[in-house]
Every structure is written in C-alpha cells, then in structure tokens.
C-alpha cells in the first residue's frame, strides 16, 4: 500500500506537467491578452507592459520561466537593470505576478482566498454527505412510499436547478425578502451565519446527486443475496441496513465523491460570485476572460492537483470500504 501510494503520488507530477503545458500553450494561443481593454492602451505602453512581464519572449521561454527557476533570459530576469518582474517560478513555489491585480502576486491571491474556498467546499461536502446519503437510504427503504417520492422530488429539483438559480433564489428569499441573512457578509471569519446560504446553495446539487446514487445503489443492494442471508439470521431491520447494506451501497457512491469534492473545493465560482465569498473560486472564470495568465495557470494547476489527489483519496477509500480491493 505504501509503495502504491508513493507511486500514485509521483504519477501526479507528470500529469500536472502535461496539464500545465497544454494550458499554457492554449492560453497563449487564444487571441487577446491581459492588456486588451475597451479603451485601448497605446502600442508603446503595451510593449512596455509586455517587456515588464516578459510577455515579449517566445512562449516556450515564458513557460520555462514560469516553471523556473531556470534562468534563460538573463536580461529579463534582472529586475534591477530593466525593472522587469522577476519571479522564481513554480518549482520555487512562486506562481508569478497577476496581470490583472497589479499590486499582488498570484501567491498572495491564492493564499488569501484558498482557505475560504476550501472551507466552503468542505462544509458543503460534509453537508452533502450527511444529508444526501441518509436521504438516499431512506428513499430506498421506503421504496415507492411517500419518503421515496419526496426524496426523489428533492433530487430532481437539486439536479435540475442550476447552482446559480438556486443561489439567487436563496439570496432573494432568505436575504432580501426575509432578511434572515446579510446579502454580503463582511465577516466571513467571525460570523458563522455568513456561510449558511452559500453552503446550502453549493450543496443542493451534490446532495441530490449523492441521494440519487445512494438510492439506486441501496435498491440494488436490497436485492442482494447476502441481505437475504442477514435476514435469515434474524438480524434486526436496522442492523441489516446499517451493518450489511450501507457499506456495500456506498461503494459506487464513493466513486462520485472524489470528483464531487474536487468540484466543491475548486468549483464554487458561481456561489462565491453571488454571495460575495472572498475565495479563489471567483478567479477561476474571471481570470480567463481577463487573460490573467498567472492566475489562469495557478487555478488550473490547483484544480488539476485537487482532482488528482481526490481520485487518489477515493481509491484509498475504496480499498477501505471494499475489502476485495487491495493495492500493491
């Protein structure tokens, strides 16, 4: 298992490497640049900006500089001579400058927001799991009963309602009409009520998703022979469900949890946008429109790493839940 884990973790490196090359070339291939504005900057200013940010180099040199700390273009890397921005590169833990937030490095931006985003994602994840799984279980146990229809109804709504619709609805109803929560909280760190609506908004889809998978999986498990065996032993209804069914039913559900967690941790863009959550999710989409190359790269790498790690976690969790799976 240990060797397996190390191997898997090491595998993430080439994956990220490939992702970074693809993203880097794509993003430079797309027309437009960080300095395109409706009110255009004079060409000389754009030239100066390109020089300052080393955008005047060939793309592969820019990539090497981004990976760093390989000193390829000495001139460009001496800040004192030409006052260009010099940064250590990814390998030195330096994600470079932001092309939009001029006062700040990408490291600053990420450091500021990532914990808020991760916290939001984790809270939503936990909520999704502790609501979604029981919902699915109950629906399956009361198959074709009122709880099943209710849960199915909730699932369909959760899946069919886009997150932004749900977010706006929650905002309009609970913040604006009822005034229970502030529409823009300014104290995310100190006021727990700030998190309520965004966490719920972000959880609706995953709850529905998890509930649906759990229900289907539970129904499937109900028909399994080993469940009949458990009944034939006289095991109580509740224990049959808890001891014999849920664990088996969760195996397929776990498969979706990894990507879901990665999605929640990195993909809360809309929710962050609507509820003014000071996380990094907002940057994920805006940076692309703004051609904020540094932020685009950072977000992509974070997202890719999150997915890779979550998949690894899922595989490990798999082995934990399903004894038939062993890694070596």
């Amino acid at each position: 298992m240990g060797a397996y884990l190390i191997r898997r973790v090491l595998w993430i490196i080439p994956v990220l490497f490939v992702v970074s090359i693809i993203t880097f070339s794509l993003m430079h291939a797309v027309p437009g640049g960080p300095w395109s504005k409706e009110k255009k900057l004079p060409p000389s200013v754009i030239e100066h900006l390109d020089q300052k940010y080393n955008l005047d180099e060939p793309v592969f040199i820019q990539y090497l500089n981004w990976v760093g700390p390989l000193q390829f273009d000495e001139g460009a890397l001496q800040r004192d001579e030409a006052d260009n921005l010099v940064f250590g590169g990814l390998l030195a833990g330096d994600l470079g400058p932001s092309y939009k937030y001029l006062d700040r490095s990408v490291n600053d931006i990420v450091a500021d927001g990532i914990w808020v985003t991760v916290q939001l994602g984790l809270m939503s994840f936990i909520l999704s799991v502790i609501v979604g799984i029981p919902l699915g279980v109950i629906a399956a146990l009361r198959h074709n009963g009122i709880p099943d229809y209710a849960a199915t109804f909730v699932s369909i709504i959760g899946i069919a309602t886009p997150t932004f619709v749900a977010s706006i609805l929650l905002l309009v109803v609970f913040s604006i009409a009822l005034g229970w929560f502030q529409p823009n909280s300014l104290d995310w760190r100190t006021d727990p009520s700030s998190w309520v609506l965004p966490v719920i908004a972000l959880s609706l889809f995953p709850i529905a998703q998890i509930a649906r998978y759990t229900r289907a999986s539970m129904l499937e498990v109900t028909r399994r022979d080993y469940v009949r065996t458990a009944h034939s032993k006289g095991v109580k209804e509740g224990s049959v469900v808890v001891v014999h069914m849920i664990r088996n039913a969760l195996i397929p559900v776990v498969t979706i949890l990894g990507p879901l967690l990665a999605f929640l941790i990195t993909g809360s863009f809309i929710t962050e946008f609507i509820f003014s959550v000071p996380g990094i999710g907002r940057y994920y989409v805006t940076s692309i429109g703004q051609r904020d190359y540094g932020v685009i790269m950072a977000m992509t790498m974070l997202y890719a790493a999150a997915i890779a790690i979550m998949n690894l976690v899922v595989d490990v969790l798999y082995a934990y839940i399903d004894p038939r799976i062993r890694y070596s």
Partner: peptide, 30 residues
C-alpha cells in the same frame, strides 16, 4: 426464530456472503 430455531443455507455461496464483512463477524453475528 430465524437463525435461532431455523437456519438457512442458500444456493450460491458466492453471493450469499457479505463481501464487506469478515466471515468471523458474519458467523458470530447471529
């Protein structure tokens, strides 16, 4: 009554045991 007074052996041993529980548990459970 089940398990205590009446035991049941099913046809397919491949599917009649719970894959996620140790067999010791499955025997001692009843």
């Amino acid at each position: 009554m089940r398990g205590k007074k009446i035991g049941f052996i099913f046809q397919d041993p491949m599917t009649s045991l719970n894959p996620t529980l140790p067999i010791g548990f499955q025997i001692s459970e009843s």
